[in-house]
Lab assay of single mutants.
Amino acid sequence: MTGIVKWFNADKGFGFITPDDGSKDVFVHFSAIQNDGYKSLDEGQKVSFTIESGAKGPAAGNVTSL
């Protein structure tokens, strides 16, 4: 699925993605970002991701920028 990064705190390594389908915002951890180098996201960035079952509920996985 796709969405827009609502916010991401690079110091803490997590944030939230707002899915394009209008569903509830999804937690994203830096370890789910699939790019080389520094793993961070920018507010407003368009991303593709999967929904994984995290310890505290749904979380984004396999996050790639579009």
Rank of each mutant, 00 (worst) to 15 (best):
M1W: 09
M1C: 11
M1T: 08
M1S: 08
M1E: 05
M1V: 10
T2A: 06
T2M: 09
T2R: 07
G3Q: 00
G3A: 02
G3I: 01
G3N: 00
I4C: 09
V5N: 01
K6N: 06
K6W: 04
K6S: 06
K6H: 07
W7Y: 09
W7F: 09
W7N: 03
W7S: 04
F8N: 01
F8T: 02
F8D: 01
N9R: 12
A10P: 14
A10H: 13
A10C: 09
D11E: 15
D11H: 13
D11F: 14
D11N: 13
D11A: 15
D11T: 15
D11P: 06
D11R: 13
K12I: 10
K12R: 12
K12W: 12
K12P: 02
G13N: 03
G13T: 02
G13S: 03
G13C: 04
F14L: 05
G15F: 02
G15L: 02
F16M: 07
F16R: 03
F16W: 10
I17P: 00
I17T: 00
I17V: 04
I17Q: 00
I17Y: 00
T18K: 14
T18S: 12
T18L: 12
P19K: 03
P19R: 04
D21F: 07
D21I: 08
D21H: 07
G22A: 06
G22N: 08
G22P: 03
G22Q: 07
S23I: 06
S23K: 07
S23F: 06
K24A: 13
K24D: 14
D25T: 06
V26G: 00
F27W: 07
F27V: 03
F27E: 02
F27C: 03
V28L: 07
V28P: 01
H29K: 03
H29M: 04
H29D: 04
H29N: 04
H29C: 05
F30Y: 13
F30T: 07
S31A: 07
S31Y: 05
S31W: 07
A32G: 08
I33R: 02
I33G: 02
I33E: 02
I33W: 06
Q34F: 09
Q34V: 14
Q34E: 10
Q34W: 08
Q34D: 10
Q34S: 11
N35Q: 13
N35F: 11
N35T: 15
N35M: 15
D36H: 12
D36S: 11
D36T: 12
D36M: 11
G37T: 10
G37F: 09
Y38C: 12
Y38Q: 12
Y38F: 13
Y38V: 12
Y38W: 14
Y38G: 09
K39G: 07
K39T: 08
K39Q: 11
S40C: 15
L41V: 05
L41R: 01
D42A: 12
D42W: 14
E43I: 15
E43Y: 14
E43C: 10
G44P: 01
G44F: 05
G44L: 04
Q45G: 08
Q45C: 05
Q45D: 12
Q45R: 06
Q45W: 10
K46N: 07
K46H: 13
K46D: 04
K46V: 10
K46Y: 10
V47N: 00
V47M: 02
V47H: 01
V47P: 00
V47A: 02
S48K: 12
S48F: 12
S48Q: 15
F49Y: 11
F49A: 01
F49H: 01
F49N: 00
T50I: 14
T50F: 10
T50D: 08
T50A: 06
T50N: 08
I51C: 07
I51S: 04
I51F: 08
I51M: 11
E52R: 11
E52V: 15
E52Q: 11
S53T: 13
S53I: 12
S53W: 14
S53C: 14
G54K: 06
A55G: 12
A55F: 13
A55T: 14
K56Y: 15
K56V: 09
G57P: 07
G57V: 05
G57A: 06
G57I: 05
P58V: 12
P58T: 11
P58C: 08
P58I: 12
A59Y: 15
A59L: 13
A59R: 15
A59W: 12
A60P: 01
G61E: 10
G61F: 14
G61S: 12
N62Q: 11
N62L: 08
N62W: 10
N62D: 06
N62V: 08
V63L: 05
V63W: 00
V63D: 01
T64K: 10
T64N: 11
T64H: 14
T64P: 01
S65P: 14
S65C: 13
S65N: 10
S65G: 11
